[in-house]
Design a protein around this nucleic acid. Structure first.
Lengths: 134, 134
DNA sequence: TATAATTTGTGCGTATGTATA
DNA sequence: TTATACATACGCACAAATTAT
């Protein structure tokens, strides 16, 4: 599964493989993934390397990790529709730690920023909000 | 600077401090930050801990790192205005590795996804694009 | 062109702490 | 309480990219 001579880092090969397995439906939303120790044994990698791969998947929002419990594929939230007032502009960025805490956001989830005509920006969790454009 | 008895992980204290120093203007956009070794010595931390903090700042898009060169505060791009056709919806998520490579995006930069009335989604680099809502 | 110095990247190991079941 | 699983933090060695000499 892991080719040490491919030039591609082992942690990236593992991340790519897990991402593909998730995308294929082998791990459905809500499903638990193998533990770090299991992954390390199955793929023949040290724990540091496994954690590096998991960190990458977390940063992509592909998996969510709960301390002491394990790793799961996130369940998509029902999208909430936000209608900005005319003259607003929509942009995106990663949340500040304060925003992450305030919204209870997982790793790898950006915010949608709506800046009103008054120039005041407001941030919304990017995994729960969509903005229609008419 | 780092309080080992505060209960807050050392890497998070370092990340918070660097983020604050960047926000204060001590490190302006385009400015270089100290090397990992320098940070480790200045804050009395091991390299693993320093790299953990840097990884967090990268995931936030607060710093960009270049292999063999160093770490800098990113320079904001001139925003490009994209006007979706009426009936589109705007959302956000982290890019896939393929999208990251295609757009040459740094870590910690989300994509803005515009789904047209036909249901076809299109992704744009989130650090370069804004969408007006009329 | 080649070499060295600097800096980040990869990968491993160990130990201990904390959260969950 | 016990077992499992993730979190923190240190160390080491070597690889790869960049820059300057």
């Amino acid at each position: 599964m892991i080719d040490a001579r491919s030039g591609v880092p082992a942690w990236r090969q593992l991340a790519d493989d897990l991402r593909a397995r998730i995308g294929s439906g082998e791990f459905a939303p809500g499903a638990a993934l193998p533990s770090e120790a299991q992954l390390g044994q199955q793929y023949g990698l040290g724990r540091t390397t496994v954690r590096r791969a998991v960190a990458a998947l977390r940063a992509e929002g592909v998996v969510v990790v709960q301390h002491g419990y394990g790793m799961r594929v996130p369940v998509p939230a029902e999208p909430q529709i936000v209608r900005p007032e005319p003259g607003s502009v929509v942009s995106t960025r990663m949340p500040t730690p304060a925003e992450r805490a305030a919204f209870g956001m997982a790793d790898g989830v950006p915010v949608l920023v709506i800046t009103g005509p008054d120039g005041l920006p407001e941030a919304y969790p990017g995994d729960q909000v969509v903005v229609p454009v008419d």
